[in-house]
């Protein structure tokens, strides 16, 4: 239990470091409206697919 918690914390810390570094690296890009537009398109499209499928599966069950 303790080990699992430690691994999970490690994972979250590493993910935070990774995304933080990415944000710093791409800061000039992050500031542009096009970045947010593209991110919106990707998240919107993939999210719609994912939640659409999940909703269809749940209604089936």
């Amino acid at each position: 239990m303790k080990g699992r918690k430690l691994f999970r914390s490690g994972l979250y810390i590493c993910l935070a470091l990774f995304f933080g570094s990415l944000a710093v690296l791409f800061w000039p890009v992050v500031q542009t409206p096009r970045f947010w537009l593209t991110t919106g398109i990707i998240i919107g499209m993939v999210g719609s697919l994912f939640f659409g499928i999940a909703s269809a599966q749940n209604s089936e069950e």
Partner: peptide
């Protein structure tokens, strides 16, 4: 660019 992005992401 946005049209192409939508196309490739789609």
């Amino acid at each position: 660019g946005i049209v192409f992005i939508i196309l490739t992401i789609a």
